[in-house]
Structures are given as C-alpha cells and as structure tokens.
Design a protein around this nucleic acid. Sequence first.
DNA 1: AGCGGCATCAGCCAAAAGGCTGAGAGACCA
DNA 2: TGGTCTCTCAGCCTTTTGGCTGATGCCGCT
Lengths: 208, 208
Amino acid sequence: MTGITVLLVDDHLVVRSGLKALLGTQPDFDVVAEAASGEDALGLVEQHSPAVVVMDLAMGAGMDGIEAIKQLRQRNSRQAILVFTTYDSDADIVRAVDAGAMGYLLKDAAPDEIFAAIRAAVQGKSVMSAPVASRLFQQLRNPDEVLTPREAELLSLLTEGLSNRELGQRLFISEATVKTHLAHIYTKLGVETRAAAIATAIRREGMR
Amino acid sequence: MTGITVLLVDDHLVVRSGLKALLGTQPDFDVVAEAASGEDALGLVEQHSPAVVVMDLAMGAGMDGIEAIKQLRQRNSRQAILVFTTYDSDADIVRAVDAGAMGYLLKDAAPDEIFAAIRAAVQGKSVMSAPVASRLFQQLRNPDEVLTPREAELLSLLTEGLSNRELGQRLFISEATVKTHLAHIYTKLGVETRAAAIATAIRREGMR
DNA sequence: AGCGGCATCAGCCAAAAGGCTGAGAGACCA
DNA sequence: TGGTCTCTCAGCCTTTTGGCTGATGCCGCT
C-alpha cells in the first residue's frame, strides 16, 4: 500500500535530501517528488497530487512560498500545505496562514515534531512549532496590534527599504493607499516613523 | 582505506542529514561526526580530528559559527574549516575569513561545487561560491566604502529608528552634521534612503 | 438590511529627510 | 609644510513622509 504522499519544496538541495532521508525513516511517508522553486511545485502537484506539500517560504528566485501556496489554493488542490522554514516572523506566519497553509514548522524542529505535523496535516488538523504558536497566541491576546495580511505584506516590503512610491508600484495600489496602510502599521507597532517601524519589524521578526 | 574525514556542524538536523547523504555518494568522503552547536563541534573535533569541518555560521543558541572557528584556530587543530551557510553577508564573509575559514559556500551550491570545495580545502586551497567571491573582490576594489567610526556609530543608532534630531541630541552634534554623516553613509552603503540604509545595516551586520 | 473590518483612494498641510555647495578645525602622515 | 581624512556646521531647495479628514466598494456576519 502507499503511504502519505509528500512533495518537498525547498530551493536548497541539502535541505530537500535531508528531509527526504528523514521522512524515509518512517514507513508511512512516501516522498513522490521534489521542487526547487514555486513554479516547479505547481507543476509537480498537478502530476503527482501529493497528500501533503512541505514548503519553504524563502525561495532563491522566482515565485516564493507564499505565492506558491496562494496559487495552489486558487486552483483546485486539496493538498495539505505545511510551511517548513527557518524564521518565525509574524508577518510570514500571518501571510502563510492567510494564503492557506495548514501548519507552520521551523527547521530546527525535532524529527518527531515534523512527522506528527505531516500526519496531522493530512487529517485536516493544524500543527505548528511552539515558538510559532506562542507568537500567534500573543497576537490573539492583543487583537488591536495584529497586522492585517495586507499590512504585513507592506511591512515586509518596507523592511527592504522601499519608498512609498515603490511600495505602491510593487503592490499595484496608489501612494495614498500606501500611506493609509503605513499609518495603521505605525499605530499597531507603536511607532511614529518608518525608520522605527523597520527597526521594530526586523528585530521583532526573524526577518533577514 | 579511510577517505577524507568530515565533521558536519549545523543546528538544523535536516541540513546535516542532507549533507551527509550528499557526501555519502562520494567514495572518498567519510562523515565521522555531526554537531548541532559550536560547543559540540569543539569537543567532536578533539575526539575525531577530522580533516575538514563543514560549518554553518548561524547556530540557534550558544556559540555561533564564527566563534567556533576562532576557538578551533586558537587551539591547535589543522582542520580545514569550510563555511556552509545560507547568506552571503559582507560582514559574515569577512569575519569568517578573518577567523580562519578556508572556504565559504552557499547552501544553494551545486553538489559538485560542494565536493570540489571540500577536496580543495584539505589540500590547503581556498574555494568559495561565485557570489561570495564577487563580494570579496568588490570590497577589495572599493576600500573607501568602509564606514568611519563616527559613521558606524551613527548607523548603529539609525537602526534603532531615531530621527535626525534625536541622533543629533544623542551624539551632541547638530542636525546639519547628522545629515552630512548620513549622506556619506548612504553613498558608502550604496543606498538612497534612510530606510534602505537601516535595512542594509541590520541585514549586513549581525545587528539585532 | 445593517454593521464592522478591510482595502482602496483623495486632498491638504506641516514636518522630516535628502541633495548640493561650501567651509573651518584638528589629527595624522609623508 | 602641505596634503588628506575626519568631524563639524550652515544654507537652500526639492522630495518624501506623516497626520488628518473623509469617502467608496467589498465581504462576512448578524
């Protein structure tokens, strides 16, 4: 019989083979394909219809993980998507969950944790690493301080040093809208300038 | 006979096993031990005296890769140390080479590149990924991109989100002087806005 | 049907930041 | 002694940002 079919998506070959080796120790897992980019992932999902997609968020070039998740959701695809990444940034968590991820694991998670998360995911359950969970709880306690997905997206770009104009162009919205979002972000982060927002964001998140 | 003995140091289990599997495909490599932290690495080097240490720089907790390299150098140890990491930050490269690393590989390097680097390292040769090399050359060509002490001080405060006025007050200089320093910093960092400078600074350095 | 949250946009005004030129004082070095 | 570097400061002008108010369309929930 065939076990839980898995597609691995990570731009680092060593991570893919490591994960594959790790999952290979479990009799009920079956890694059917690997992708090094979001684009490849979409094609391979069509081909193999895996039960679970284990995906890194940061992809070297082209479509990133979040975008790949969105695309998968938009198609049909009843794959459970599990994010497997290095950093537990607030923005990424929110965006990934919003895009349709079933779980959020950090790369330093213990093997058992990884196995459990994959098995839970195929059953429609949601699992996340402890640090990730605590961040989410933190957010639930202070709902006023939770950034909306759009705001998180903006903040993420903000930390790359873009101007309002550039932000607008990148997100296909007017500069006025950018300013509105920024004002909300500042309020939520408790800062008054973009510089402080960037500093707060990068330090608070695992952003790089 | 025994091939090239290798110690793997990385806080991510999946990376370790992926690398191990990868090196296992080559008959002349022999992974004798794995460490998840700098501390462990030091002990295991003593035990096994591997020919090569393949080390990640970012370690979850405790001693980081750079520190581990320094410690190894300070002891006796004629191991060749190869940095194997995700990011090609200027500061990390310089620090690693300074600490005594023989090579600097990025995690998205092709398998052949990794093999070649390890073989070169045991022979005392130095190998690095192309993006890393280009950064080093960049730095050698442009020595005037180095910040002066005062500029570095300002940049550090900048990453805390202060305004020009606040910077001036903090450093007991006029706002005009702050602006002068900032202009120089922007030029040297190759950016045009304070936001980009902050982003660059925090990502480039280990500033957190 | 109505309400609230979200995302979108506009206009106005004040404050902050950035580009440019020029310049003086002290340190260090050839 | 002269040249170079660094740090300091000023003025002027343009661009960017931030604060504020108000408004529209959409969606989901009641």
